[in-house]
Amino acid sequence: MANTLVHNFFDPKFVTLEIIPNYFKMSGASALIKSSLAKKYWMALTGLFLCFFLIVHLAGNLTLLAGDSARAGFNAYTKFMTSFVPIKVASYITYLGILFHAVDGLLLTLKNRKARPVKYAYEKPQVNSIWSSRNMGVLGTAIFVFIVLHMGNFWFRYKFTTLPTDVDGNFDMYGVVVESFKMEWYVGLYVLCMAALAFHLYHGFWSAFQTLGVNHPKYTPAIKKLGFGFSILIPLGFAIIPIAVYVMNL
């Protein structure tokens, strides 16, 4: 329908809108699935859910820095995460969340591309918006690639290869992690990807609230500040681990 409109736009009758009545009948439920806003709501909800996941994941990872008890602690944590049923369910929801967030983002990006088929010859977007807000797709892709690598390196090896065990009989994931973080390029990549995550969160955190309709002159500045703090602290926490492990093992 939209295409015929564009072709017929010279036709004055076109303004009289025969198209509207059908559209009026759109029910609430389908509006919540098909509309552009719905895609944004899902983006925001999955995004906030993944923010929560980051906190949990970071808390677990920090056991890597627990000094002498790090090996036993981290391995026990790994065991718990992979065998306790509710956690397993949660982790599959998280994988789905990541996929949904990525696919939804891709769909939105495609629609956005279509909305501007011809680009400007001269653009100056830096004067009206921040870089990260305009590059959520690129940042998200970087993060997604990282997740794939990350899962391949740790999750895949844990699940599908035979690892040595520690004194408690748990698989020695700690050893795998330390081995990986002895490689400079891997540490560098990890830190870089955490920087991407930081930028992604810097815009994404606040943006999720805006999309869900939470914007108020009193509270929005606080949300933005919280988002800023979150976008610095979480990736920083993740990035410190490989650096610390690398330095300790020099």
């Binding site: 895609k39 944004k40 629609k111 805006q210 869900l212 309709g213 939470v214």
Partner: peptide, 30 residues
């Protein structure tokens, strides 16, 4: 296209229409 909340529209708007309106619409549509 969709809104990515870059805020550029509100900056360039000659009448200074605020992003709060976009949030209100999101809220009301939901």
């Amino acid at each position: 296209g969709n809104c990515t909340n870059t805020g550029a529209c509100a900056v360039e708007c000659p009448k200074g229409i605020s992003l709060e309106n976009v949030a209100r619409m999101n809220r009301e549509f939901l």
